[in-house]
Nucleic acid binder design. Structure first.
Lengths: 226, 226
DNA sequence: CAGAACACTAACCGAGTGTTCAGCCCGTGC
DNA sequence: GCACGGGCTGAACACTCGGTTAGTGTTCTG
């Protein structure tokens, strides 16, 4: 579809899409079409005229954000995965709205959220595998679970921080994320380097527990009558 | 306020409040008063008659959930803090809606969310302090930051997991949270026991970086021309 | 210049929202 | 018997929402 001239993408349609991305990222997906239209400097029906419905506008925003960030992912290959990419990207003023949109999307759930999340998990798995191969990262008993765990926690921590102390001005999102990283780096590096426990008792206990669970269903089913 | 007879709290008013907590937890705070009223088996105006406005109903739900969970917190003093309390509580069928409400609240932000979060952070700080004193937990260079970091990540991970794969039936929330803990326990214990890195290079590099930052703005400025 | 195609808007629609109001039902006190 | 008052409801209000329609200019094409 959309076989029109390339200049088509530089006109009001793109303006509306960008305004929608910015508004969605700022205020969530419950914002009205009229607000978006006003931001773009057009009338509300024109939004529908171009995108058909609010859902399709949302879908187009998803695709746009996904494509834009994916195209800039190769460049920003840093030492840490997952959230670090978003933080780096949010520093660049232009991409801050896109990052806000992604975070809003993950907070809200839905298809794009899962897509991004799975991509982050895959990235983390690659990084960890490379680290293990290089000898800088300890191997895990379940590499996939560890990659998922780490990205889930990193992304979730970011989200909690941002939800509890929301950033009003999207221009300050970059600084805000940087502050989050600053607050998190020391505890994270401590934990990643030395761990938390002084001995292996809890881990060992869990390992024998999980390989040889105490007879019957563990704790989920209070009455294992079957 | 509410100096009425104690039986007042067992009637429709309480029924509406409970229905509201359940619905808010299930579908978020955007649900209509009519839906809540229907759940409670009353008319929509009666909800207003009892609570004045939707906001005040929300506030009353907040207070109720906060009081109920706080009163049961002393009992469920477990080994891990923060999210573990919620998981334990969600196992009990009666409290599952309350837990859903809390998580929904943290996802949404607002006052109650901050209240709960800060309480969790304080709890984690206590646990960690006790662990350090008992010699089972390594001391940190910044205990407050570590407590905040750990609860933020644990809570955020829970939230991300639940948002990306939402649970439809509130009765399954307990099982769902238990599954999350199962998926997370092994990587977490591995990380807490052995850490992630094989050497101290990154931590040491960060420590000298943070105590003696390279002149000028550190990393935010891509062109340290100075 | 005619005419089609396009970008765009004012006015409107039906649905759903929180909220208000007049009044019903029913137990209680005179 | 009857007024009364509180729990409660149906109808309706004012408002906003996403979406539709009909019609305006503008612009490009032949």
């Amino acid at each position: 579809m959309r076989s029109a001239t390339p200049s088509d993408d530089l006109t009001a349609r793109a303006r509306i899409r960008d305004a929608a991305v910015a508004r969605f990222g700022r205020d969530g997906f419950a914002v009205s079409l009229r607000t978006i239209a006003q931001d773009a400097g057009v009338s509300a029906p024109l939004v529908l005229h171009h995108f058909g419905s609010k859902d399709r506008l949302r879908a187009e925003c998803d695709a746009h954000v996904l494509a834009t960030i994916a195209s800039h992912k190769a460049d920003a290959v840093g030492p840490a995965g997952a959230d670090h990419l978003l933080v780096e990207l949010a520093q660049v003023e232009t991409y801050a709205p896109l990052v806000a949109y992604v975070l809003r999307s993950i907070q809200h759930g839905g298809e794009l959220a899962r897509t991004f999340y799975e991509a982050f998990v895959a990235d983390a798995e690659d990084y960890l595998r490379a680290g293990v191969a290089a000898g800088t990262v300890r191997p895990s008993r379940d590499e996939a679970a560890r990659a998922r765990f780490l990205t889930q926690q990193a992304l979730g921590g970011l989200l909690v921080s941002l939800t509890l102390e929301p950033v009003d001005d999207p221009a300050q999102l970059g600084a805000r994320l940087r502050a989050h990283m600053d607050a998190v780096t020391l505890p994270a590096l401590e934990l990643y380097t030395d761990g938390l426990m002084t001995d292996r008792r809890m881990l060992d206990a869990y390992l024998v527990y999980v390989t040889d669970p105490p007879a019957g269903t563990p704790a989920a089913d209070p009455r294992p009558t079957s």
